[in-house]
Each structure stands twice: as C-alpha cells, then as structure tokens.
Design a protein around this nucleic acid. Structure first.
Lengths: 313, 313
DNA sequence: ACATATATACTCGAAATGAGTATTATGCCG
DNA sequence: CGGCATAATACTCATTTCGAGTATATATGT
C-alpha cells in the first residue's frame, strides 16, 4: 500500500430564495471559478463533520447555518482538481445542503441564482430552448459516437430518462452527470486536461462544486414533497402566493394556484394570522405562519405540489 | 492544527431477502459483535470510493456486489470505537447499501435477519409488543429526566414522531438514534465507556455499523416506492405473491394482496411469462419477470405499496 | 363607477386508493 | 369421483385525491 494521504473536504450549498430567485451563496475567488464555501475537516478540533462545516462556513461567510443536511461524499480521482493536474493528497469531499433566509453576505461572497449553473433546469416560463437547440443534438451525437452498440444503448436510455418525455424535476444530478460525460460542461475538459472545442452549458464551478450543487438541488426538490423544508426559507409570516413562488423557484415548475392553496390549507401546514399584506395592487392577501405542530401530528408532512399541466393560473 | 490523522472506512450493508426474511450479510468476528463487511479506503489504489468498497467486500465475502448505493458518511467522534477508548487516528466512515440475491456465504460470514438488530421495526404480524412494554416507558422516563423544559419538549416531539400515532416505516434511523441517546441500545454504553444498568434492545453491532444498517433500511424502504429496486432482490422470474412477500419483508408491513397486484400490473413493472409455479397446495400462480422497459417509459417507476389497514387478505 | 389585479371559494369530472366479494384452478382425501 | 382446503385472479364499490376551471370578493387607480 503506497503512502498517499487522504484529506476530507467539506463544502456547503447554502440556499435561499429571494422573490422568484433560488440562490446559492458562492465565494468569488477572484478570477477563478465560483466556489461553494469549503474547507478541510480538522479531526483534532472537531467532534463531528457538521461542526467542522459550521466552523468553515462561519469563517468564510459569517453565516450561521440553520437547517443543514449531508448530501453525498464524492471521492472520484480527478474530479477534485482545479486544473486537471493531480495534487499530492487525495481529497474526499463531503457535500452539505443548508437552508437560510437571504441576508447580507460577507465580502468575497455573493448570492447567485442556481439557474446560472443549471439553465436547463428552469421550466417555469417554458421548456428551456437550449434543450432542443443544444442539448439534444449534442447528446444524440454522444449516443452515435459510442464505442460499441451496448454503450450506445445505455447512453440512449440515459438520454431518454434525463431529457426525454416526462420531465422529472428531481433528476438534476443525473442530468449533470450525463452532460459531464458527454463533454458538454466545462468541468469535463478541465478535469481531463484536454482542450474543449465545443460548447459549454451553464457556468462552471471550482472542483466538483457544481456536482455538489446538483445533488443539493435534486435533494431539495425531492424533500419538498415529504418534509416541510420550504418553511426554512420563508419569513416568519408570508402570503400563500409567496410560498407558492418559493416552491416554484425551487422546483423550476409552475404550480396551479387554487390547488396549491387547497393542498397547503387542507394539510394543516399553515395557519392564518388574521393580518394582511399591503400589496401595490390587488386584494390584500392574508399572512400565514408555519404550524410547527404538524411535525407532531403527521408522519410525512410534505407539500404535495399540485403541478399545473396547462395554461395560466 | 494538531496532527491527528484521518482515515476513511468503507462499510456495506449487503441485503437479500429469502422467503419472508430480509437479511444482511455480517462478518462474525469471533466473540465480538457482528460487523458489516468493511475496510479502509486506499486512495493510492482506488479511483473511486465505490471501487474501494467492491475490493474489500470481494475479499471478505467473495461477493460480487450488484446494485450499490452510497448512504451516508459518519464522522462523529467516539462512535467508531470498539470499546469506548479513543484510537489514535480518526475514522470517517462511509456506508453503502448493496442489494443481491442470497447465495452461499463465505466462511466467517453469515446472513442474519435485520430484525435481529431492529426487532421493533417488524410490524408484519402486529405491532411489536416491546414498543408498549419496554420502549415507550423508557422513553417517557427519558423525557422526564431531561435537564430542562426545552429539552423535554424536544424529546417529547421526537418520541411522538418516532413511536407515536401513525407508524412511518421509513424513520428507521431516527428511531435508532433516539433509542441510542436514551441509552436503550448497547452501543451507547460502549461508546461512552460507562456500564449499562438497564435493558438493551436488539443485538448490538461493531463500531457504528448498526447505525449504518438503520440508514440502509430507511433508504431502502423509501426507495422502494419510487424506484424499482425490489427486482434486484428477486429471482429472474417470480410470482406476484413472492414479490409481495419480499416487499413486505423490507417494509415490515403487510400489504393488501388484490390491490398490490393491481398496482404492479397497471404500472407495467412486470410482464407474465406464460409459465406457472407448482405450489404444494392451491392454484398455481403465473411467473412474472421485471420489465426493464419501464425505466425508459416512466420517470419514477416505483411501487406504490397499497398498505392494508384492516384485517386479513 | 369601473377597469384591473389579486385573493379566495366553490364545482366537476377523472383517476387513484382502500376494502371487499366473487370466481377459478389446483391438490388431496375419503 | 365429489367435495374441501388453499391460493390465484377478477371484478365491484365507495371514498379520496387531483387537475382544471369558473365564480366571487376586495383592493387600487382613474
């Protein structure tokens, strides 16, 4: 067994939603790719991985993490390099998801829409044009270029699952990984040390941070439906439309307004405060607050979405 | 930063179902607690964490893993000790779930029902008596013994979510963690180095392996419902009742037979082979096989369960 | 007063769900 | 051979949930 060291890296995708924009806190390492707040795990100082994470994030962003959740541990050789050249110690990278309300960020950090990094994931207005114009042609070529028939069939299946009939908004990571392997994403060329001659989709991130962010979005989109996590992102009181817009921002989909409020109300996730918002135009909306009690009452208090399949709401 | 080393441990909960018994492959370290197959990650030799895992498992169990999935990375200080005394290097432990069909095991390894380790999780016959007789009284005491009112309230909520009204079969890990903190599980006393004067529930495992197994069961029970993972555990052809018994074994619940077959059939998860089983008594059942095509056709081809809420089927 | 913009309430059909009953195909036992 | 026990499979039915609308209420600005 040759002596190569391992070190553990901790990274956090810190998510907030402001208005209709789902954003992630990135560290602007000047000139370099955007990065998630990250740092090495120090086993001597930290009792748990999560406390290590909180320390790093606190130092880099002055943010006090609220809800956090471990995502995944990545250890692939070559996917944690900044420029394709191997470093001496191997980094195993543990990714976290954290939810907060957007506050003022520290210097060197910035909130950016996560759709900067994943423009094909935002279906709120319509199916992103780039899917038909750029992604599908390139992926079809990727299928055609397969070294053998078996690989071609596998690639065809993945294409279909990721971008075919029936958009499954949770498959964010699968889609990113497919685009990576097909060389449609800058990181692929950087990690392999070759020059990219084609298009790159979305904005690249440092190391494997875009992969971690994809995992975070996928997890959050899934979890929405069976745990009341959205409320971590809301102000103490909010209107039902604000809640809906937040969910839509995260899911990248439009929901049916009347049904959404029915679901939310019926499920007892929320209770009225008797106070009302003062909107610029239109009827004022009642302000609601999250009912903490549901946690005690029901086993899986998620937010069934009530997706809209037709025109307007 | 003081120099304490980190090493990465890989462990696998390898699951199979034989008849009505959901089992996990354990290594019988003679005299010591049961352990999952595990070993350190060697960054020099292995390109990915998963390949490292496959190597270890192959050596220890001669098993060729089929479906595998990463579960969680545990790094808590003190929860990876065999006897409560700290070792010099810190172990961060990455747990995996693997699904196979039960074959002949290697020497030193053994298939054991996972309900040995989690007897309170098997509700197939009825609610396990130990919940009323042992768990609830002890947990109520745990609530009462809280150092302050706030902690007591938190503990009361957790008790309710884990063992209160409305059994949620997926909360396996939450329940185990609660029992751990309440000192109802042997590992708690071992990790803290104190002597246990009360009862211990279930069979203890080495290190944090029971925690990993709890994570595995929870994940599998959840995943069942939205990905066709059960079929990894089935023979190439099977009757619908065999499929149902397998799902029941995993979920720890009884299902409604007629509705189960309706769901499975309607969803196109399965196709008839035209052949029939030869049972000891009763009408022969048609043998079915898994339809690989669903993966292409539908976004989330899970097995909605069709739980039974009343008497017999 | 009315046009416009929202919020909120209510309706309706289609599908999914939970729980049964009914019918069919075996082996076995006298 | 006829009837029973045992399972498999088919069909029924009421209830709930879902998706999609229409209708009504309450603001503001002109």
């Amino acid at each position: 067994m040759s002596k190569e060291n391992v070190s553990i890296g901790l990274s956090a995708a810190i998510v907030a939603v402001e208005g209709e924009r789902p954003s992630v806190l990135v560290v602007a390492h000047q000139g370099k790719d955007d990065a998630l707040p990250f740092g090495p795990f120090d086993p001597a100082q930290q009792r748990t991985l999560e406390s290590g994470l909180r320390k790093w994030v606190g130092e880099q962003t002055r943010f006090d993490l609220g809800y956090t959740e471990q995502l995944y541990t990545f250890g692939d050789k070559g996917r944690h390099s900044a420029g394709g050249h191997g470093s001496s110690t191997r980094v195993v990278s543990v990714g976290y998801l954290a939810l907060t309300r957007q506050g003022k960020e520290a210097p060197e950090t910035e909130w950016r829409s996560w759709y900067h990094y994943f423009p094909w994931e935002d279906w709120r207005d319509s199916k992103p044009a780039m899917i038909e114009s750029a992604i599908l042609p390139a992926l079809k070529k990727f299928v055609k270029d397969a070294p053998n028939a078996e690989t071609a069939e596998l690639r065809r299946e993945r294409l279909n699952v990721c971008f075919g009939e029936g958009w499954d908004e949770e498959r964010v990571l699968e889609r990113y990984e497919l685009l990576y392997e097909a060389g449609l994403v800058e990181e692929f060329w950087r990690d392999s040390g070759k020059a990219n001659k084609g298009a790159s989709l979305g904005t690249a991130m440092l190391f494997d941070h875009r992969r971690i962010l994809a995992t975070a979005i996928a997890r959050l989109r899934g979890k929405l439906k069976y745990r009341p996590v959205v409320f971590e992102l809301m102000a103490p009181t909010f209107t039902l439309l604000e809640l809906q817009r937040t969910v839509e921002a995260l899911a990248g989909l439009r929901l049916h307004k009347q049904n959404f409020r029915r679901l939310v109300a019926e499920q007892g996730l929320v209770e009225g405060t008797g106070k009302f918002s003062a909107p610029a135009r239109g009827r004022p909306a009642e302000l609601f607050r999250f009912r903490r009690d549901v946690l005690r009452e029901r086993p899986a208090p998620g937010l069934r979405l009530g997706v809209r399949r037709s025109k307007a709401s």
